[in-house]
Design a binder for these strands. Structure first.
Length: 268
DNA sequence: ACACTGACCTGCGAGC
DNA sequence: TGCTCGCAGGTCAGTG
């Protein structure tokens, strides 16, 4: 499932592949993907050119001539660039015809993803109560301290809270906490100043490494597959059985409505 | 204000 | 073999 590093990779790949392309026709095949009226969406997107590509948290942002298109891939959303002759499968919900003869196709098995048209100059700094970007200087140890003040929520839930920091999902939350030697179920009320520093540093280090790896993986894809949000990461705890550090058994616990993987020996 | 739960979806694997 | 059931996950509305 795409988290910040995957979304970043998708944005950069699409920028290279369809930057400057103009949409000549749009067909929405499953209306609920579109926030607002799907027919109006088709009409408004027609004739628009992909000008700039941005990301905010897990949201993809396409700056067009007269509007901004925001897209969230949720769990399984993927963009493909294919010729019109390629088979349209049952999970391809939005088809954009491009002026270079190709089609941009939005594929989403679970139909969870969403697309929305917003104003051309929409400011995303305060979009949907999203917290700071992990690489922004606003995400620092004293911010972590101020945010967690008065809260007793588990650290896992804190990292998944998009208003705390934008872009972290279930996989990276587990990986960040493993790197910090902190258990996912531990209350955010009783961590130290050192822990706050670790959370910031490890979040940035792990996401940076993942973006680098994501880029590498995407480049190895054949062009016919287009762009996907999928990428193989070398997880130390998530979905693992044995801890890479101590060789002990990895435990799975349901925390904050998510399955959370951790090493009871290395994380306290 | 905070914390937790269920709904949205479909595919897949486990268990019977 | 074929069925049912639970799980996976990001976000948001709803509830306590």
């Amino acid at each position: 499932m795409p988290e910040l590093p995957e979304v970043e990779t998708v944005v950069r790949t699409l920028e290279k592949q369809i930057g400057g392309c103009t949409i000549t026709h749009v067909h929405v095949r499953y209306d609920p993907i579109i926030v607002g009226d799907a027919r109006e969406f088709e009409e408004q997107m027609c004739g628009q050119t992909f000008r700039r590509f941005e990301r905010r948290g897990k949201y993809l942002i396409f700056r067009m001539d007269d509007l901004t298109l925001v897209s969230h891939l949720r769990m399984e959303g993927k963009y493909y660039i294919q010729p019109p002759s390629a088979e349209i499968t049952k999970h391809m919900h939005v088809i954009f015809d491009l002026n270079n003869g190709m089609q941009l196709r939005y594929n989403d098995t679970r139909k969870f993803g969403r697309m929305e048209i917003l104003a051309k100059d929409k400011d995303f700094r305060h979009y949907k109560d999203l917290g700071p970007e992990p690489f922004d200087k606003a995400f620092n140890p004293s911010y972590v301290h101020a945010f967690r003040k008065g809260k007793r929520t588990p650290l896992k839930s804190l990292l998944l809270d998009q208003s705390f920091v934008a872009g972290i999902g279930n996989i990276y939350a587990d990986e960040i906490l493993a790197a910090c030697h902190l258990r996912p179920g531990r209350s955010c009320a009783n961590i130290t100043k050192k822990d706050e520093e670790h959370i910031v540093n490890e979040t940035q280090r792990i996401l940076k490494a993942a973006i680098k790896a994501g880029g590498t993986t995407i480049r190895s894809y054949t062009s016919s597959l287009g762009v996907t949000g999928r990428f193989q990461t070398s997880c130390t705890v998530h979905m693992q059985k044995i801890c890479a550090r101590c060789g002990g058994e990895i435990k799975v616990k349901y925390i904050g409505g998510r399955s959370s993987y951790y090493c009871p020996h290395c994380q306290h």
